[in-house]
Amino acid sequence: MNTVVKIENLVKRYKELVAVDHMNLSIKKGEIFGLLGPNGSGKSTIINCLLSLTEYDKGEITVFGEKMRADNYSVKGRIGVVLQNVAVFDELTVYENIDYFCSLYIKDKEQRKTLVQEAIAFVGLEDFTKFYPKKLSGGLLRRLNIACGIAHKPELIIFDEPTVAIDPQSRNKILEGIMELNRQGATIIYTSHYMEEVEQLCSRIAIIDKGQLVATGTKDELKSMIQTGETIRVEVPELTSEALFGLQKLSHVISVEYNDGLAIIKCSGGRHNVLHVLEYLSNTGTSFGRVFAEQPTLNDVFLEVTGKELRDEVQ
């Protein structure tokens, strides 16, 4: 696979604060590459550096094999950007907005007309072309924001937290749209602090914290990097200390916590862990209620590699 984006040793400082600390990333053609990290972790700064919207202190960024600079318009023409905030003109209609932003890439009016119509159809705004942005709901505004970024059919599309503060229905629609764009051949960079989205969408993920690259790989690769393979939660009204000790002694069990009638048993990657736990509880005469078994999540990965919960950071 060809490398579309290569970031080498990128450093960006805001006075004393190191926003991006010696970052190295490589994004291949056709990927949906996720940048996952809590707010303030440096995701948007990386994107701004990548787009040459901000100057950086050190490192090199290559896009489509060319060094990225603010005046490298041939490369810019191959990139589409969907920013976190809805960046459209309040004074222009839906159609006029898409047409204007498309005109920053495509000069030919006829070609642009076709592209604008396609973008409108892609995001499902056919019934709202003459509406002004103030008349649109939050979800429709996000779709307009996306249409403005993709109308010129870019090869690389950067989505910077495109689903912040919208309803689940619109979110699903946007995620489906991103997958469709990827199927049509676009390489996607997707930044988010919603790990479920990143997990669902991205073929490769970089976990970022405090401007540093914590881990990178596919979701399976990331999960395999951590000790926890499976988390079993069992409702146990009463658990004796002997039984708790016995659970800890079971093979593949890493740790056992017991609080408020809920036993949380973390296991490494062995098979039939649930069966072994339940057999042990039955044999020791310990009564139990509902049982839940979960595969590790990206939150577990984040927890193990940074020592803190991604969810907590987000909140």
Binding site: N48, Y73, V81, L104, Y105
Partner: peptide
């Protein structure tokens, strides 16, 4: 005033700065 306000809104400026048309031409 509204013209300048629209074109120099931070998010719009970011988007237009990403375009293929140079900032000077814009």
């Amino acid at each position: 005033g509204p013209v300048m306000h629209a074109f120099y809104r931070k998010d719009i400026k970011m988007r237009t700065d990403c375009g293929k048309v140079s900032v000077r031409k814009q």
